[in-house]
Design a binder for these strands. Sequence first.
RNA 1: GCCCGAUUAGCUCAGCGGUAGAGCGCCUGCCUUACAAGCAGGAUGUCGCUGGUUCGAAACCGGCAUCGGGCACCA
Length: 950
Amino acid sequence: MTEASAAPSTDAALPKTYDPAGTEARWQRLWEAAGAFHPDPDAPGEPFSVVIPPPNVTGSLHMGHGFETALIDTIVRFQRLQGKNVLCLPGTDHASIAVQTILEKQIKAEGGSKDDLGRDAFLERAWSWKAESGGTIVDQLRRLGYSVDWKRERFTLDPGLSAAVVEAFVRLHEQGLIYRGEYLVNWCPASGSAVSDLEVEMKELDGHLWHFRYPLAGGPAADGTDHLVVATTRPETLLGDTGVAVHPSDPRYAGLIGRTISLPLVGRQIPIVADEHVDPVFGTGCVKVTPAHDPNDFAIGSRHGLPLITVMAKDGTMNAAAGRFAGLDRFEARQAVVAAMEAEGFLVKVEPHRHSVPFSDRGKVPVEPLLSTQWFARAEPLAARCREALDRGEPRFVPQRWEKVYRDWLTDIRDWCISRQLWWGHRIPAWFVVSETGGVITEATPYVVARDGAEARAKAAAQFGDAGHELQLEQDPDVLDTWFSSGLWPFSTLGWPDPAAADLASWYPTSVLVTGFDIIFFWVARMTMLAGAMEPAGAGNTWMPFADVMIHGLVRDENNRKMSKSAGNGIDPLPLIERYGADALRFALVREVAGAGQDIRLDYDRASGSSATVEAARNFANKLWNATRFALINLGGETPASLGEPDPSALTLADRWILSRLARVNQETAQRYGSYGLGEAAKGLYEFAWNEVCDWTIELLKRRLNPRPPAEGEPLGAEVLADQRVARQVLAKVLSELLVLLHPLMPHLSEELWHGLTGAPEGTFLALQPWPAVDEAALDAPLEAQFAELIEAIRVVRNLRAVAGLKPSQPAPVVFVTGRPELAAVLHQATGDITALTRAASVEVRDPGATANDPVEATAAGPQRCLAAVSGELQVLLPIEGLVDLEALRGRLEKDIAKAEKEIKGLAGRLANPNFAGKAPPEVVAECRANLAEAEAQAALARGRLADLG
RNA sequence: GCCCGAUUAGCUCAGCGGUAGAGCGCCUGCCUUACAAGCAGGAUGUCGCUGGUUCGAAACCGGCAUCGGGCACCA
């Protein structure tokens, strides 16, 4: 052991800088090869499960996914260290409409169309797209170090999940929660499909308000009125008008209710009806009613029994009912109708008008409210169960404010249109009995809902009779809304509907769902709604899919804009990983998140591809790397295990301080990780590791780890060696434990360094170690406070040296003067440390009483040569000859005085207020008095020192 | 129109009743054998405005302003 005191070896095990690329790839490979994150449902430990929000297979991942991954993986890795039986299940989503849109665009660019290809060829192409995009995504997730179970990876369109979709559909249908009907739906002419209300985005546009004259049929009214004026933003729909509405109590039109209008251009006779919906003060107070092309008009129409006349086809062109406008595109038709109205003298005026137009989220074109026969899910019964569960606190939202958003949406909810006229997706498990309607599907064709063709045939036979070969079935060509399958994700991935599925038994309901606020309605609410409906008999409405929902914000770009594909401002995580490492990127993202649920802004320089934020995290990784490197050089070949725990009686003040801090940080960090305070955990660890471990502890340990022999060539004494061992024990314990605490945030680096430090074999993983127990006995708050004073004393000395212009290499004697015995004791104990950290030639601690007249008289230097500073009531003196900057010193003292005076003024003012002394708690008043006394003492001392300088 | 955030140092953000903090950036000095991706020291804020509650407000309550988001929507 004695040779360990020799100069540290220069060929240390680790290079000077951390290179993440190789390290990260290596551990990703080893973790996966060992099945480290492939849990057994029957393994011991409390189950903890997370299903990841499956990314869409629409290309590659962006920074938002990186952020979410960092959050989830941090949570999951922490729970694993807590000894739980953790499952983190990965997968991807088929994203029906988004993928189909991409593919159709590709095919169109190649000069073809999906109809030329045909359904089967199109789907083949979609699957190969999925393979490519899914592969890219999975690779990206691996590169982030995601500790998911790749053996359980799922895809929303894989056979198991497709079976779950069919089963869910059938059960919902059996419960009467799915129906088919003709309603006004949001029709997206670009994708040729209905979309749900959620997929419609309102956009403010500058348009026009056209005022048209609608003549009364059958001559003028009693007051001579022979027409009404209606205002519209959509002239082309007048071809489908079947009424005009006015407010029932509008005196202007009271006499006209019940009369008839002769619709211009069309000549149809349509009634004037009275309806509360009409706002008498907007426009003319008269509304044209087009029930087949506007949701509000649809409602008015149904209240008054007005007919529905559809004038537009599903491709957005006018149909035969539009008469001479048939065949025109809807926007051409608008111009044409206006021109015709003007030509025939019906146009009164045109006003510019800014209004909201519904756009299709995916197709980026205005949606058309259109009558169409679709499948719907009854939302209210599903939502009601969710509201009941929420009343019991299920699920629990973090941050809590999102609960209101969720609840509000579930209240006054509208039915969910679940069918889509697309090919890529889950085909609706309904079969039309076409033999009943002449071999074709019509509105009147009956259907059966079944799990497969055979079951459908059996059901149809039972219902319609199987007269030999006459029974003809045809499956509905439409597919389901993507969110229908995503809505089953938390249980379909665990083996549902198989009641015996082991994964389902162990890990359902899942522990926490981590996702963005932008899909609370699309996804979170759909999952809770569908889970409620799939609840096994007797479960008692407790089948919520997750206990907690952690809502995170969006990652915004360097200009605080939302990242989006169309804006082209997305930031790809991969180049940042390559440049700084996955751990650095993860740490940077999590560290930004302290105000949970808030958006985060990622600093990024597009020109150079650099990010100061991520670079700072990379520097932190390098700092840890070097701290470990230092340990490897100085532990004399020993490991934390071989060194063992230090004997408490042998610890120095600094040892006891850092061990107390370690225990406290352990407690705080576990509490933060466990309650989704991930940003706080990251910040706390960063500060602890860098400031307390590296800047203070390692600096303080150096002397003891590398003791100098009494004389050249002489051996070290037994006491010195014993203390060296204590120093090694402390260093090994602090560092190895710190690496565990950091592991959820920086998995690769911590794994690598932990192996270096402990010498653990490759197949043993930090990722699977137990979280270190908090050493309660080490916690010592008074000691931490004392040590903070020592740190402050050292800082004052350093500041004084810097202000005075002493060269770093120039030693100087240090004299502390304090009247507080406990501080004096600490300073005495730490003399060696102070010497090392301040380049002190000597350290003296004096009592002001003993040197009341002139504390520096006993030194060689006169008062003019004594550098002085004051901190609290501690005086720090550097009696020294030679070149010093007296001006700077005066400035420093003057600043001290000004600061103290400002404090005195504030405190004295408070104490002078009779209400303060009378009403504030006594301890606050006492503290205030003490602070005042201290500030006054400090001011007096500083004035004295200033006077001494002359 | 209704609802929800945000507003604190040049930038990104903590703090949420006892009188302002961190990281980055900036300034000064250091290549001190773990780390220059580093070390030591330093500067920087009428805590958006305005009333109120309180002995005391960056923090709690009311109003206003600005920015961001969600929901609804008048043709």
